[in-house]
């Protein structure tokens, strides 16, 4: 089996444009939520913008990632207002507005709005990330924001008042890579997201996988066909992520280290996952399908002459007397 051919099909069948209807529903809801926030907070809010994978063009159709950053003015909740107040106020507003149409819940640094399935069974999910500029009117100049950490997030403690970040710089970080390299990076990121989706409750955030992929491209000779590139990135994660001195700087704020979003145990698990994956694929190429499955919804049917066959005497068989499985 040609592993790169399979990986190309994985990307092709996960392309977001394949799900045009659902994508349009997300765009419509996104617009509606944005306008509701602007109407509610008027001059206390800068224009909300998308920061998730859709903005970075690394989205997949099995899980849309619409993150909307809401940049608030420093004094939006009073000159002594806290980040907690900002977070709670936005939550209360969204909860009241959407409680009959969606599950609205508090997440690590965002508020998740998961709309109930519509008549087509489609579910739209938007994560709203409230952030506050560092000083009054400074956001226009530096685009820096402080976020509120609602519950324990790797090594960031619950209630910790701030993760300072610059989301625009994060987006730019991926958008700005040289075109040729950017396509390879995006493909590898997409594949890692497909893998992440096969794992139950994987603690590695998509943004973490994006940054570590970029770091692998910066530090290793990532070349060859698509499998060769992916393999190099997997090896890099396996070898480096547990290192004591390993850092993953947030391009939005050099003093944020994204490695702190994972605990030591989670880092070890991630490294072990990479090791197992590489070993199993080395054992048998077919195992790549377990870790990087195609999206069967969009597989193109292929005609073939292959058949289930017998050895010439019909299909009736007696199984071998003793057989051992492991």
């Amino acid at each position: 089996m040609d592993k790169s051919l399979h990986l190309d099909s994985v990307i092709k069948t996960h392309q977001i444009t394949k799900e045009e209807q659902l994508l349009n529903k997300h765009k419509d809801k996104n617009k509606e939520v944005k306008e509701a926030l602007e109407q509610k907070y008027e001059s206390n809010i800068y224009s909300p913008f998308n920061s998730g994978s859709y903005a970075k063009n690394t989205a997949m159709n099995t899980k849309f990632d619409f993150d909307m950053v809401c940049p608030f003015k420093r004094n939006a909740f009073g000159s002594n207002g806290t980040l907690k107040q900002m977070y709670e106020d936005v939550f209360d507003f969204l909860y009241e507005k959407y409680k009959d149409d969606a599950n609205v819940r508090k997440q690590k640094v965002s508020i998740g709005i998961e709309f109930f399935a519509d008549e087509d069974g489609d579910i739209v999910k938007i994560d709203v990330v409230p952030g506050r500029e560092l000083n009054q009117d400074q956001y226009k100049d530096d685009e820096n924001l402080n976020l509120y950490v609602y519950y324990k997030y790797g090594n960031f403690d619950q209630g910790s008042e701030r993760i300072k970040t610059n989301v625009q710089a994060q987006i730019k970080n991926i958008k700005d890579r040289a075109t040729k390299e950017k396509d390879s990076i995006r493909k590898v990121i997409r594949l890692l997201k497909v893998w992440k989706n096969t794992k139950y409750n994987n603690p590695a955030k998509s943004f973490f996988l994006e940054l570590i992929t970029i770091k692998a491209f910066d530090n290793k000779d990532v070349s060859g066909n698509l499998w060769g590139k992916l393999e190099t990135v997997l090896q890099y994660i396996r070898d480096e992520v547990t290192g004591e001195s390993f850092t993953l700087k947030d391009p939005g704020n050099g003093s944020n280290d994204l490695i702190d979003t994972l605990t030591t145990t989670e880092r070890q698990t991630l490294s072990d996952d990479m090791k197992n994956m590489l070993e199993r694929i080395e054992d048998n190429d077919e195992n790549i399908k377990t870790y990087f499955p195609e999206n069967s919804k969009f597989l193109e049917e292929e005609e073939s002459d292959n058949k289930y066959e017998n050895k010439g005497n019909g299909f009736y068989s007696n199984p071998p007397k003793n057989e051992r499985f492991g």
Binding site: Y308, N310, K311, N313, F315, S317, N318, P320
Partner: peptide, 14 residues
């Protein structure tokens, strides 16, 4: 095991 089954003389299925 699966190789052994496929190649076993009493097994008719390929």
């Amino acid at each position: 095991a699966i190789n052994s089954i496929a190649n076993h003389p009493e097994v008719s299925i390929k």
